[in-house]
Amino acid sequence: MPRRRAGAAIPEMFRTMLEKPSTRAYPYQKVELPARFRGKLDIDPERCTGCQVCAMVCPAGVITMIDIGTRKVGDKELPVKRPVFELSTCIFCGECVDNCAFKALEMTKQFELATPHKEDLTMRKALTK
């Protein structure tokens, strides 16, 4: 049975005091992110075909498809759709990125998404084209 004593942590306390602090002064000192880090979603409008798979798999309902025009297939008029992302509800699971067959989606390293305007978090990039 080890000896009971008050202040068993004191030696380690002084050792810790001489070491560098393990916390980082975050906003002043950025952290390096691992290669697989999942940050803000980004889309390459050139590659998106509007296939809607991302909207179907998204667990948080981030993605809504909007009609931006029509195209003719045979003798039928089909709507052309593009996604709009409501990033404020994104849960960063990356399922849409995994399921995008055209590699149009990617997760960037950006994670400081706080903003005073909620509209900033609605990504309409794909609509412009």
Partner: peptide, 13 residues
Amino acid sequence: KTAARMQGRIGPK
């Protein structure tokens, strides 16, 4: 400050 340093933190800065 001392408590922070002993606990591996930075403390007031």
